[in-house]
Design a protein around this nucleic acid. Structure first.
Lengths: 238, 238
DNA sequence: GTCGATAAAATTGTATACAACTAATTGCGT
DNA sequence: ACGCAATTAGTTGTATACAATTTTATCGAC
């Protein structure tokens, strides 16, 4: 899946494994935004020296998945509301643009692969495996964009999707956080019919739907309002 | 210009300076693709330890401006032809998309700023200052996209533009490598009239024009062909 | 108890020493 | 001269020690 290069070096591969572990843990919401990532702890966990951990952390910081504050260490990024909006707006541009360039490049096998991912996502959803559902939902989008045959575009979208899972972890309501199964299916159908312009439109709607399902207001716990409400209500034991 | 954050730390700032130096040297084609970047040399040049240099090099590698091969060090990236095509295709999607989202956000002052950059580029062109012309041409595109008010989008485009200067350095003909002055002016005019859809179309054409002006065939110096030609012609002194 | 300053602990930032690897050179045999 | 191994020089990869900084804990004074 993510094995793209021949991996010349064993050391290179070890770095990659640590990176993939952390990346997956973040995208699956097993590590929630704000979680601190002390270098010593990670080094001990992965059996590597801080030098290696540091390299991986900087890579994750570059991708916007963690934030490194000078002398204060790393923590899982907490996307701001404007940043989240920008990310979804950029995804709309890129993913719709990818669909528009896809005409004549999509084979029957490609469509089957998309359907398989979609089915797996549906399955995970039914089983209540939320982490798997989120991951497969992302994989659907990544795989879809890949059909445009533009490696640069694919990488940009993959990174934005990873950041999107941080957005969902921060602002998503506990239920119904992933794409609706039927919407992905609709996109597959439109592509199968060769209606790429319509598919692009639908994708735009789809992403807007996801964005709208988020709860922007809760960003800051709004300490003042919470306390006022608490005082107004029944003040239980301290 | 690039001073975005308060820069809490002096060390942080020192890293940034080294990064900016290398970044500018690459984008201005003062460091050409393929140039090797030994860590010791850079460390001595900038008066820093290899630890610092290493950090900066990895950042440049993430952005695709240099390539780090395991155990073999870093060198200025040499974009392949497919990669170059993908970069321009992605720029078309992003920059046209930015223009489409710009309606109602552009002030008269913004237009003046664009005109100023364009004039400066024209000036550099006339003076024969090729490095400045390339830099200002990139700045025009970056500033233009910035008017969409999407920071994520702006950063992605800025990175692709940096890589574009590597493409131009690799495949560009020595003359007429930058955007035509009149095309940028045309885009400004269309925006001033509020014709954002037309401006987006024109931007697409503009980027395609740049892409077409490149010489894809010369990628590998094609040793065999060159030698055959040499033997067939007049073989001068060895 | 609360607040403040001080001290201790924990954590990150950096330089450097050494190991591992690659590239270049030498030297030998044919 | 040529090819090929062995040696040497040069460069990168990593762990670690130490310095700098932040965070936590301690301890009086009010």
């Amino acid at each position: 899946m993510t094995k793209t290069e021949p991996l010349k070096d064993a050391a290179q591969e070890r770095d990659e494994i640590i990176y993939q572990h952390l990346h997956a843990a973040i995208c699956d919401s097993r590590l929630l935004p704000g979680t601190r990532l002390p270098e010593d702890t990670l080094a001990e966990t992965f059996g590597a020296s801080r030098t290696i951990i540091r390299k991986v952390l900087q890579r994750l910081a570059y991708e916007g998945l963690i934030e490194i504050r000078p002398n204060r260490g790393a923590q899982i990024a907490e996307p701001s509301v404007p940043e989240a909006r920008d990310i979804f707006a950029t995804r709309r541009i890129l993913e719709c643009g990818a669909l528009a360039e896809m005409a004549g490049k999509v084979s029957a096998a490609d469509l089957e692969a998309l359907k398989a991912i979609n089915a797996a996502e549906d399955d995970a959803q039914l089983k209540g495996d939320r982490a798997a559902a989120i991951r497969l939902s992302g994989e659907f989008h990544i795989h879809l964009v890949g059909l445009a045959g533009n490696a640069v575009l694919s990488e940009l979208v993959a990174r934005l999707i990873a950041r999107s899972s941080l957005i969902i972890a921060t602002y998503g309501s506990p239920i119904s956080v992933t794409c609706r199964h039927s919407e992905h299916e609709q996109i597959i159908d439109l592509i199968a019919r060769g209606a790429f312009a319509e598919a692009a439109d639908w994708m735009g709607e789809h992403l807007t739907t996801i964005e709208r399902s988020l709860r922007w207001e809760q960003e800051t716990p709004d300490l003042q309002a919470v306390l006022r409400e608490f005082i107004g209500g029944s003040a239980a034991k301290p």
